[in-house]
Amino acid sequence: MVRARVTYNDNHLKALYSLTKKPYVIKKLIPKILWTAVCLAAGIFFLRAAIILRSSSGYIWIALAFTFAALYIRDIIKLLSDDKGKNKLPPYQYSTELIFGGQAFEIIKTGENFTVHRDFPYGTINKAVETMNYFFIFVEAKKAFIIHKSELTEGSVPELEYFLASVFGKRFVDKRSVKI
């Protein structure tokens, strides 16, 4: 049996985001880049036309086009420098005990005024991923329990690796070379 006790903090969220961010960032980045290009092209076209025609009536369109381009560039910078994504910690404090062994993956969450016990049969778990410093247990496609390797309270990392490989088979993804 392997146990871990985790008190989630921003480092866990950053680790999860680092693991899952590539498709999310690409999906958000493509339309932003396209719109930045359109706004810049429109601004340059209007500016060129205003210079050639010596017209002052198009300045509002030039200003609008470059303003939108600047706003999109700001969004792109924000997206690329973000390290947590949309992941957030709940507003209440709690610690989580995770237990591997038996017929199901057990979670015991203990807060100041509540206790929650969940059992996930191993067949219902989406996948498990191991990186350099963390284990991620995905109970749904986008929901994961995150365990730093130093948070094991019973058993060892090799024991947990062996257990996950034997229970999950191909659903256990080895990414130990990934520096997360």
């Binding site: 005024n113 509540f114 929650v116 016990h117 969940r118 059992d119 049969p121 219902t124």
Partner: peptide, 14 residues
């Protein structure tokens, strides 16, 4: 239905 069980004990303040 998939066998996932839940048990929650809550104080009324929660």
């Amino acid at each position: 239905k998939n066998g996932v069980t839940f048990e929650g004990r809550y104080h009324y303040s929660a």
